[in-house]
Design a protein around this nucleic acid. Structure first.
Lengths: 360, 360
DNA sequence: TTCTAACCTGAATCCGCTC
DNA sequence: TGAGCGGATTCAGGTTAGA
């Protein structure tokens, strides 16, 4: 390999320069919370005349859109080099910058998979009453390229949402209370610290335990903290020494979850493949058995080599299932049943689950 | 003045050419639902093998992103000429095109005021389980320029939202049922007809009665129908004669409402839904926690994705609750408890109530 | 007539391994 | 690397058919 990856470390420096020192195709995922280019004009005051503590740090100011675009394209290009072929990138922004980010991603041959809306449970109201309450931010989730076979932990996301598909709109509170890092005077250490719940969902969605997530704009280290808790490795890059110090201290204090607690639901795709022939070999469905669909409309006979026959149609459980229904395809495991002595039908998939259970 | 405005008419033709014939600074608002450039490849089937009727119309196909960008900038530039100085524009899109739209708006010196999320009550699921359910579309709301004194009907929006500031995320159902235009054979007339509830909110937000809203991609005329109902004038441009005819017939049948009656047409109220995974993400019941039934007869471990495990059984709080009791079903919220430091058991439902209280 | 169950559908960039 | 094929995959709401 040559280069050693700086796992679970915070690199203090410019994110482009630091990424250039990483080997290509080396990280499984990237989460990036770049400067928003907010361009606030003057002070913003609440109706009671108190001053809103907005983002006016130097790192968030750019001369113009062209400068911001050049910066965006430079770090996104470097990020793409560092990203593994099956890796994905998350980028978060608001309407000030997210269109620049999205267009740059597309122009650099990333392939957008979703835009995800972080709906804030407790957004700051619009004090002037001149616009809609800006109650969300946008995350763009993209693969390295159009043909990428990227990772998506579908079953884990579904489990997180009580057994329904996870949607593209996420309702999560702002980072407040004890989670929010504050200095001795009680001031926010970082103006845009992201909630850990947001990173929890991001990291579970696209990485497995032991894999590596890179954050080129680490800030006060939410990505590192959640990665460590969930048993993932992180690489953080942060230009500001003060933020980096706060992040290091914060991440150090995180207690990683036990291996079992970090284990999420495995989808069927992740489970070992069992050929139907195995059921025949082991005598669970002996040759000569009769298979039937749920409505007992069709039946087929099991042969010794694990193929089945229904009239003139012979082939796999899938092929014959498709043939009798005149359907383009068929999952034979979820179609064919065996009649038990009492007359009840038992799905082939249940026999398979029995074998998978014995293996575990 | 010279030129007479074609009020409450549908101009059949290319939107750029037709806009060029309108005088400058003549309309108060623009709503534009341009082609999304979806780039669908093969066909898509539901798990039950039925075919999804995707958008494959010729008007949605572009050679590449550069062609799409050129088209976008051309019509946006013409729209800006036609827009009054105090006018605003709404543009709707999905992740396929919305970044191109937003970047073009900014480059043409429009000033983005909000991005607004249309959260769909009933989106189409992701049938292959390869991405998050694409459950929203994005509207960009922009003024003609940075210094524009644009109109925003703050009080009307607040009234529509039970006297709270209107947020940037709107929960609105798809256009289905009787509202959806269908031909004699029952086929949808237009593949992407927008719901009237969406336009209702848009038009109320940025126009007054008697003012003019322009739609350069009228389609089957939702903008015209809602404008007429709300006592606004519209100018519609549509290239396809069939769509234009359907729109004309539809708008003709609309009965204008009084403004007070219009205000009563609020959006659908959403029921909050808290999945168990939310408690896990937010750290109320962290991964690794032990759940117990009231009699402490069974216990289960919480994992990072909100599933729980008891022996070999893993699944939702409901599934595992049912499994350990050998019952057909179980309400996990009312079954599982967490042991508090003092030893007292606290029901999961109480944690959920806590979150619901915060949201209200 | 009324209730229930089955069926239909919506702006969708929707598979992945083996040979 | 392209073909072949195993087999994984859906939610809400409206409409229609049937009991």
């Amino acid at each position: 390999m040559g280069l050693e990856l700086p796992l679970d470390q915070i690199l203090v420096g410019d994110c482009i320069a630091e990424m250039q020192r990483l080997p290509p195709a080396s990280v499984h995922a990237i989460f990036a919370d770049p400067p928003y280019n907010l361009q606030l004009k003057g002070d913003l005051r609440r109706p009671n005349d108190t001053l809103v503590d907005g983002v006016d740090d130097a790192w968030d100011r750019f001369a113009d859109l062209a400068t911001y675009d050049a910066f965006t394209r430079a770090w996104l290009a470097e990020a793409r080099r560092v990203l593994r072929k099956d890796g994905t990138i998350w980028v978060i922004g608001s309407y000030h910058n997210v269109f620049r980010l999205g267009a740059a991603l597309q122009d650099l041959d990333y392939w957008v998979l979703n835009d995800v809306i972080w709906r804030k449970a407790n957004p700051m109201p619009n004090f002037r009453g001149r616009r809609f309450t800006n109650a969300h931010e946008t995350l763009i989730w993209a693969a390295r390229g159009e043909e990428s076979r990227y990772r998506f932990n579908y079953a884990a996301m579904k489990a997180l949402n009580e057994d329904q598909q996870m949607r593209s709109d996420w309702f999560i509170p702002l980072c407040t209370g004890p989670e929010r890092l504050r200095d001795a005077a009680g001031a926010k250490v970082h103006p845009t610290q992201k909630p850990e719940a947001l990173l929890h969902r991001v990291i579970l969605a696209c990485t497995n335990p032991g894999e590596i997530i890179l954050d080129p704009f680490l800030g006060t280290g939410t990505t590192g903290a959640v990665a460590r808790r969930l048993g993932r490795h992180f690489i953080g890059i942060e230009r500001d020494q003060g933020y980096a110090d706060a992040a290091a201290e914060r991440i150090q204090a995180i207690v990683p979850l036990s291996e079992t607690a970090a284990l999420t639901m495995a989808g069927k795709r992740e489970q070992p493949r069992i050929p139907f022939g195995t059921l025949v070999e082991r005598g669970l469905v002996p040759p000569g058995s009769l298979l039937m669909d749920r409505a007992r409309r069709w039946s087929a006979t099991v042969t010794a080599d694990g193929s089945i026959r229904c009239g003139r149609a012979q082939g796999s459980i899938h092929q014959v299932g498709a043939a009798v229904q005149e359907a383009p395809s068929c999952n034979g495991w979820a179609f064919w049943h065996v009649e038990l002595p009492g007359g009840r039908l038992r799905l082939l998939d249940e026999f398979r689950a029995e074998i998978l259970g014995l293996q575990a």
